[in-house]
């Protein structure tokens, strides 16, 4: 369980929040504090007040995969192959194993054909897929994804989503503006002006929001139509 207690940081004000393992979607209006929360969970910032604990450890003490909301700002190296291999090389894994794992992970993410490419020549979607593969190659316990799906077509996003759920990460914390994706998550955290507006299973969170555009379109249109 991830425990957040008395968090006060920039726009965020969160009293007590416990996030169980599984797939948690963070959603809400632009500027509502989603990225700030995700950065705290990834250990990239320390809260001004309050505490965050991953089971019995602090965020920085746990292996974490991270994808920034700006695709171009996820790139450390000039080559896709170097990008993908970096977490393994930083972990001092032998070269043969690095090469094997990079091949497997690239295949898994559908970016094998991009391995010899320069990172700045990739399209937005390709950059996102590369970042995601890099975030997952070290098999992290926590995966923090900041709106990576907004640069993907629905076919690719759905396929990648299934793979993410199958990645073995214990906690997947994903920010998205796709309500249908939120509807499929284990739980949804709806943030508004830095505060938790609702948190729980999608059915509970969206139950009072039928008139709001956040209500999943597949639920709205699917009911009674078989779509």
């Amino acid at each position: 369980m991830i425990h957040l207690h008395g968090i006060q940081h920039r726009i965020l004000e969160i009293g007590d929040l416990s996030i169980p393992p599984g797939h948690t979607v963070v959603t809400g209006w632009n500027g509502g504090g989603k990225t700030t929360l995700l950065r705290l969970l990834a250990g990239l910032e320390l809260p001004k007040a309050g505490s965050i604990m991953f089971e019995d450890r602090k965020p920085g003490d746990t292996e974490c995969g991270w994808v920034n909301e700006f695709p171009g700002r996820n790139m450390l190296f000039s080559l896709v192959r170097d990008e993908l291999s970096s977490p393994l090389r930083f972990a001092h894994i032998p070269c043969d194993e690095v090469a094997r794992k990079v091949g497997e992970c690239a295949e898994w993410a559908g970016v094998s054909h991009l391995l010899p490419r320069r990172t700045h020549t990739l399209s937005g979607g390709e950059q996102v897929l590369t970042s995601l593969a890099t975030a997952l190659i070290g098999r992290p316990q926590i995966l923090v994804l900041d709106e990576f799906d907004s640069y993907l077509d629905h076919g690719t996003a759905d396929a990648i989503d299934e793979k993410i759920l199958d990645s073995g990460a214990r906690y997947i914390i994903q920010c998205t503006q796709n309500p249908d994706l939120a509807a499929r998550a284990d739980r949804v955290l709806l943030l508004s002006h830095g505060r938790v507006h609702a948190f729980g299973p999608p059915r509970d969170v969206f139950s009072g929001l039928e008139r709001c555009c956040y209500y999943p379109p597949s639920w709205r249109l699917g009911r009674g139509t078989g779509l």
Binding site: G65, W66, N68, N74, P87, H92, T134, G138
Partner: peptide, 18 residues
């Protein structure tokens, strides 16, 4: 951003240069 990436990718000291 580079510091963030180094941190989340587990860089502390050295690595395999291959």
């Amino acid at each position: 951003d580079q510091a963030d990436l180094l941190y989340t990718r587990g860089y502390s000291e050295g690595g395999t240069a291959c």
